[in-house]
Computed example of a mutant assay.
Amino acid sequence: MLPIEVGSPSHRAINFDEIENEEGLRTNIELIDEVRDQAVARMEKYKEKTKEHFSKKSRVKNFQVGDLVLRDTEASDPTNTGKLMQMWEGPYKVKEVLRPDTYKLMNMDESEIPNTWHGLRLRKFYQ
């Protein structure tokens, strides 16, 4: 009981039935598994909706061997960034597709670039 209910009892205190309360608690214990299952289902649905939302924003870029691409300057040299700096550098040729969205690049003079590059850090170059 709340201290204020001692002097003037509330509706909750007046209508309290201990037997009915015990039955209600037992019913809640019996239904706890269903409540948990519903919560797990809601979490799964929320995760799926979140995944769908963020996957809409990322577009898959498929480059073929020999395509000309530009490379994100921030990915190649993080120290050389700024508001007025170039955003893309290149063009480069796609030398090899290692797996979806992972590429080996080479310069236009056929010299290989040592790192692999993710497709999100590349952009198609149009002449």
Rank of each mutant, 00 (worst) to 15 (best):
M1G: 14
L2W: 11
L2R: 13
P3V: 15
V6A: 14
G7W: 12
P9W: 15
P9G: 10
A13V: 15
N15D: 14
E18D: 12
I19L: 10
E20L: 07
E22Y: 08
L25N: 05
R26I: 09
R26D: 14
R26S: 07
N28A: 12
N28F: 09
I29Q: 13
E30T: 08
L31H: 11
I32E: 14
I32T: 14
D33A: 13
D33V: 07
V35S: 11
V35C: 10
D37L: 03
A39M: 04
V40A: 06
V40G: 01
V40P: 01
A41R: 03
E44P: 02
K45H: 05
K45A: 09
T50A: 09
T50E: 10
E52G: 01
E52S: 11
F54E: 08
S55V: 06
S55M: 08
K56S: 05
K57W: 11
R59V: 13
V60T: 08
K61F: 13
K61C: 03
Q64V: 05
G66K: 04
D72T: 01
D72W: 11
D72M: 09
T73I: 08
S76Q: 11
T81W: 11
Q86Y: 10
Q86P: 04
Q86S: 08
G90H: 01
P91H: 07
Y92A: 00
K93V: 06
K93Q: 12
K93R: 14
K93W: 07
R99Q: 12
K104N: 07
K104E: 04
L105C: 05
M106D: 01
M108N: 01
E110V: 06
S111G: 07
W117G: 00
H118G: 02
R123N: 12
Q127M: 14
